[in-house]
């Protein structure tokens, strides 16, 4: 049953990452568009820089869990790689429980609190364009939640593997 949950979570994070990865193309488009409008037509937009920044922020935030699915977050495993497989799995469970889970649980909760404060005030950006930024803050919290879920999925996997050894 738990294995099933772990698979589902991983599949979810793979999918959200694949979709979000395409944000890079609209991001690229806006950057080039802004240069052309300003340099060629002498008509810079008031929204170009902000829209660019928002897309960039969402792009990498959505990628956190996705990158973890592919074990892409850099680590120093030269020491642990000397251990037996069983000990390696144990270390993964141990570090997940002491480093990852407490931090990411709190991070997710406080990111949501941060988003709620902003949403209650319907906060907009402090600029001339002044787009609403509360939805972005909600998405930031959602992205931390995705990452937390991926960590839980990893934990389930490791515990299963540990039991089988």
């Amino acid at each position: 049953m738990l294995e099933n949950v772990s698979e589902k979570l991983t599949a979810l994070n793979r999918k959200e990452g694949e979709i979000a990865s395409f944000l890079i193309y609209p991001l690229l488009f806006i950057v080039v568009y802004e240069v052309v409008m300003r340099y060629v037509f002498n008509a810079p937009t008031i929204w170009g820089f902000e829209a660019t920044t928002f897309l960039y922020g969402l792009h990498f935030m959505f990628g956190f869990a996705y990158t973890d699915v592919y074990d892409g977050h850099v680590k120093v495993d030269i020491f642990t790689s000397l251990l037996s497989t069983k000990k390696q799995i144990f270390m993964r469970i141990f570090t997940n429980i002491i480093f990852f889970l407490p931090v990411m649980i709190c991070m997710t909760i406080w990111a949501f609190k941060f988003a709620i404060t902003s949403t209650m005030g319907l906060e907009v950006n402090s600029t001339s364009w002044a787009p609403p930024i509360w939805p972005l803050k909600i998405l930031m919290a959602v992205c931390f939640l995705f990452l937390l879920l991926q960590g839980i999925s990893n934990l389930i996997n490791d515990i299963n593997a540990f039991g089988k050894k």
């Binding site: 002498n42 008031i46 820089f49 600029t127």
Partner: peptide, 8 residues
């Protein structure tokens, strides 16, 4: 009528 850019 100026072209104002909110450059960071």
């Amino acid at each position: 009528g100026a072209s104002v850019s909110p450059l960071p």
